[in-house]
Design a protein around this nucleic acid. Structure first.
Lengths: 214, 214
DNA sequence: AGAACCGCGGTCAATATATGACCGCTGGTC
DNA sequence: GACCAGCGGTCATATATTGACCGCGGTTCT
């Protein structure tokens, strides 16, 4: 209700307005071909004002990445709260994964390049660390699901965690990459989701104890 | 989407924020005992800023009156769009009238003093004219209802328009004044509404053709 | 190759907006 | 009638915003 409070609130609003504007632009054009001027216009500000809120174009980009990565990690982590079965969690996880990156190709591109150790731009040190840390935490969720599945007797106890984690991870990225590369559009997302789901179910069958029981 | 546009929009937002803040204060304390500083605080601005948007306290008050009067007139005018019967319109009109002024005592006080030609403050010339004009238009709605009633054969054709208009108008104001004066509160509004409705129905019976038919 | 040019990220003097200490007046108190 | 308190309104100061401008890296022209 105060006066200081109002200015603070308005400052935050400006910052998020810039982020929202920039996010849409980066999403559809990529980092390089988005100009600061265009961000300013979309945020209904002048170019100079952008620099009152962020150090520069790169920092804006960094914030967007951080937001997206954290949001993604949160969505994935939520799966562990009330797991029904390990298989189910894996399937949901994949669905979230695919959905997220089909809506955020730019982030996907960044993360893939990160994984391949060929980043295409210099991000600030701490952002780099954050990305690596959060990505690892997210990947480790898959491992945790495997552990949970083994504990519940759902998966074979002899499962190689790292190997299987990498397999799932790779499969997801592969399918997404393939579809993005071949230019499939967002409104065909269901096709991709079905492809992933089908592949995953076969994969899960391969590592489940049910197979052994027969 | 533009930049000029954003600033214009924000200016309007500030103006309405001030008006909203001021309205609440005026409503509960009356014109004199509301300080500009208190309006500024409620609108989360400094006192000086208020004067960037309005010439002064009086102008703010004037705008509030204008808004309220126009809104009131609109609500009353809407009744003429799809009239069911003249009696029904009169009853609805009275209900809106009472409801409106129970929620806006300050405006009621002003308008009554206007009608009695004893305004308690000097308002700008054009505001004065607007109030008089709009008030007359609103009063004339009652006359139009009578005319409509006569045309539909609902009321006696010999009805004296001005006399009956004044009677209704006076009755409404009288009942509201009485209740405001005796300190009845807003949450007892139903009692006032029922009083008005009962009185009005008797009045309408008095001027309706149905009586003659018996 | 290198000259000439262009477009962009980033800067900064100029402008617009917001603030609150201050002024003069008024109405009340002793 | 001298004092005071409290208010509406002002204005020098502080903060926020703007867009013309700068320099640099990349691209085209000769």
């Amino acid at each position: 209700m105060g006066l200081e409070e109002r200015r603070k609130r308005e400052r935050e609003n400006r910052k998020t307005a810039i982020l929202r504007a920039a996010r849409r632009l980066f999403f559809e054009k990529g980092f390089k071909s988005v100009t600061v001027e265009s961000i300013a216009r979309k945020a209904e500000l002048s170019k100079g004002s952008i620099y009152l809120y962020y150090k520069g174009k790169e920092e804006i980009y960094a914030h967007i990445l951080l937001n997206d990565i954290d949001k993604f990690h949160d969505r994935i982590s939520d799966l562990l709260i009330n797991p029904i079965s390990a298989s189910e969690v894996l399937i949901r996880l994949s669905s979230i994964y695919v959905d997220f990156f089909l809506n955020d190709r730019e982030l996907f591109r960044i993360l893939v390049r990160f994984m391949l150790h060929t980043p295409d731009m210099n991000l600030p040190e701490d952002l780099n660390n954050h990305i690596i840390k959060t990505t690892n935490k997210t990947i480790s969720v898959i491992e945790q699901v495997f552990i949970y599945g083994i504990e519940k007797g759902e998966f074979q106890a002899t499962l190689n965690l790292r190997l299987n984690r990498n397999a799932i991870w790779g499969m997801l990225n592969g399918i997404i990459s393939l579809h993005l590369f071949t230019g499939i559009e967002k409104n065909r997302a269901d096709i991709i989701q079905n492809t992933v789901k089908a592949g995953l179910e076969i994969y899960i069958r391969g590592i489940s104890t049910a197979l052994q029981a027969r």
